[in-house]
Design a protein around this nucleic acid. Sequence first.
DNA 1: CATAGAAATATTGGATCCAATATACAATGT
DNA 2: ACATTGTATATTGGATCCAATATTTCTATG
Lengths: 221, 221
Amino acid sequence: MKLDAVDIRQAASAADIVYEALRKAIIEGALAEGENLRQDQIAQMFNTSRIPVREALSRLEQHGLITTQRYKGAVVAGLSIEEIEEIFEFRALLEAEVIRLAVPNLDRKTLDLARRHCDEFGKESDSAKWGETNRNFHYSLYEAARRPYYLQIVRASLDRIDRYLRAQLTLTDGMKRAAREHEAIFDACAKGDADLASALTRDHILDAGRSLVVFLREQRG
Amino acid sequence: MKLDAVDIRQAASAADIVYEALRKAIIEGALAEGENLRQDQIAQMFNTSRIPVREALSRLEQHGLITTQRYKGAVVAGLSIEEIEEIFEFRALLEAEVIRLAVPNLDRKTLDLARRHCDEFGKESDSAKWGETNRNFHYSLYEAARRPYYLQIVRASLDRIDRYLRAQLTLTDGMKRAAREHEAIFDACAKGDADLASALTRDHILDAGRSLVVFLREQRG
DNA sequence: CATAGAAATATTGGATCCAATATACAATGT
DNA sequence: ACATTGTATATTGGATCCAATATTTCTATG
């Protein structure tokens, strides 16, 4: 008998499942900031004990998605406007560099994929999916940089402000502007102009940050 | 009776203590890469149960200091030369920006402190302490950037290559060169020349990375 | 009625126990 | 001798139990 070798994937642990589910809920805004996360309650939701829940919460805290106090529990982390500004500034620096490194490595296949994600973003009407298609577009290009460590940090920093970014996209012209900027970034990439793609990415992020901060200042008073 | 309000620090949990101890051991190289970390064994060392140990290990994994496999346990993470190069490149980008942001905020007190750390580094003869004094010098300046998120990432990225960086410092002229470069960085900061301080910091990190990689290529064959 | 203090309840942190899996090793057949 | 299979041991993942702490509720008292 002969079989093709198959890479058997380790089944995810309970902690992995809980972690991913909570992470998704937080970055999508399904869990409001400040909301209490009771270990028992979460454990029951996932039909498990508190042990894997605690491990998941510990990981979330390391990533800054929740804050915990000893014997008091965990709450979904909220960010001050200053913190949000800092993270947007950080992302602008980092992602501008990542796209610069990516452009020389872009091949036909990757560009086609990015093109599709770009179109998808432009056409998407379900605001709940904007965050996902936005990520897909950027990451499809970023992958070409072949910098796994950079991308891990990019992902972590985006996780922390994704909720707010999604809010920004729903602003009056947020989506339209983002779609236009994506087109410009894609064109620069397709032309192989790394400096332009970098500068556009930087502006894309800083613009989103600025209009979000304006919005939040009004909202929060 | 009147008392000054004191910020009572939450006593550290067992998991915190184990985490910090293991983190220190790993970044200082006391635990060799590839070394097995048995939960039971660690628990006994700290006179505790495996629960806090597991939480500590989970955090270490999130920070990339160890790798774990389900039902097989944790080992101290090792980095390939490519990964080391990527992290040095990343640090150069990030820390160059941090020092640029810090320079305009530097005051007399901070400069004095940095001056002392710089001298201390130059005089330090105990190679085990170089890593610490090196951190002290850079961080004393970085703090002035007032960018807590940046600094958190800087710390995490330094943690991952600190073992190797310490090795680099022990190289023939590693310390002498680093001390000279620190002097130059300090002078640029004292002069208020942000661009120069940034460029020097960038070169400082890239130099260290390059000579480390040369060393590792020989060592690893 | 308002408030301070005590008791009751809820929640987290840690210890111990059990289940799932991996590793080491011996037994067995060729 | 060698590979294979079964078994014993070690180790991790998860469940349950207990201790420490926080929060709420109740009660007594002014």
